[in-house]
């Protein structure tokens, strides 16, 4: 699989940050999916964002500007 099609999960501190991050991603026209946080990361109900790993560099400056902190996890296919 090519690097560009690898999927990454972005995990946030709260659902409010997920919603804020989603608005930014939508405004950038990036394809994404809202998915549940995998059980291995949290047993609580939580949502995270799945995107192509190659899109992260576009997103990072916007997240930094808006004080959105996240953890990135590469999805095993």
């Amino acid at each position: 699989m090519s690097e560009s099609s690898d999927k990454c999960l972005l995990l946030f501190q709260s659902i409010h940050k997920v919603m804020q991050a989603e608005r930014i991603i939508v405004s950038l026209g990036i394809v994404y999916q809202i998915v549940p946080v995998p059980k291995e990361f949290s047993s609580e109900c939580g949502m995270c964002i799945e995107i192509d790993c190659s899109d992260i560099e576009v997103i990072v400056p916007e997240f930094q500007f808006n004080n959105i902190f996240y953890n990135k996890v590469k999805v095993d296919v």
Partner: peptide
């Protein structure tokens, strides 16, 4: 409403 939307997306992807 915003929470309801994001929960629905999460549900459909789950």
């Amino acid at each position: 409403e915003d929470l309801g939307k994001i929960l629905m997306k999460g549900l459909l992807n789950t």
